[in-house]
């Protein structure tokens, strides 16, 4: 896929689609399914996760030389939990309505596999610029995945985007998409679509 030690630019590009945390790595699906019934909470969640990912990557990359193998998971967890607490408090203070809507899913960022796996795979092994590029790339990829899901669910399920009515009122709202089953169904269909598109691109590249 890449050379033994990917450069910052490679890390950045990889996070957006080739190693997209949701569609390719299938990590962090709990918030993906839970908060994507409309676009506003989806983007707020993506922003909060990107914030925690960036801060955690920077911190771990800075103390990289001091990390010992048997204590590293402990230190990752402590760092991530601290930044998630800060993000949660900031949301409750300045975006109270959205914080109530997101509910328990903001503290669940702590056990979001994306962040621990990035700490383990990248920031504990590579210096600061690589860690920052990786965090930004993964954050953008995560935001794209969440918005694609929320776009479909809100548009077809409520006829609106960001709360503004977009489809005419004659559209029968596909209520199932806003409910829990709709989350599973939409993600399954979108995942299939992404896989089909990637396979077709790979076949076209190979046949050239």
């Amino acid at each position: 896929m890449a050379s033994s030690s990917p450069s910052p630019a490679e890390r950045f590009i990889a996070g957006i689609l080739p190693e997209n945390p949701i569609y390719r790595q299938l990590l962090g699906m709990c918030p993906t399914l839970a908060v994507t019934n409309s676009l506003k909470p989806a983007l707020t969640m993506a922003a909060a996760t990107a914030f925690v990912l960036l801060c955690a990557n920077i911190s771990i990359s800075l103390i990289r030389p001091l990390l010992k193998p048997h204590l590293r998971i402990l230190i990752f967890t402590l760092t991530i939990a601290t930044f998630v607490t800060i993000a949660d408090r900031v949301l409750a203070a300045y975006l109270y309505e959205m914080s109530k809507q997101l509910g328990p899913y903001v503290p669940l960022i702590i056990v979001n596999c994306i962040i621990i796996s990035r700490c383990e795979a990248c920031s504990s092994k590579q210096p600061l610029p690589h860690a920052v590029a990786d965090a930004v790339g993964m954050g953008i990829g995560f935001a794209l995945a969440l918005s694609s899901l929320a776009f479909v669910r809100e548009l077809l399920g409520m006829g609106s985007l960001f709360g503004y009515q977009v489809l005419p009122s004659s559209w029968p709202n596909w209520g199932i998409l806003v409910l829990p089953p709709g989350a599973f169904l939409t993600l399954g269909v979108l995942l299939g679509a992404v896989n089909a598109w990637t396979a077709r691109r790979k076949a076209r590249v190979q046949s050239n």
Binding site: L26, P180, G182, F184, L185, G188, V189
Partner: peptide, 18 residues
């Protein structure tokens, strides 16, 4: 082929949730 693995699992989970 595109749905093998997690794709079909998610669709089945949706029906189970219903």
């Amino acid at each position: 082929k595109a749905l093998k693995g997690p794709g079909i699992a998610l669709l089945v989970a949706g029906i189970l949730a219903m």
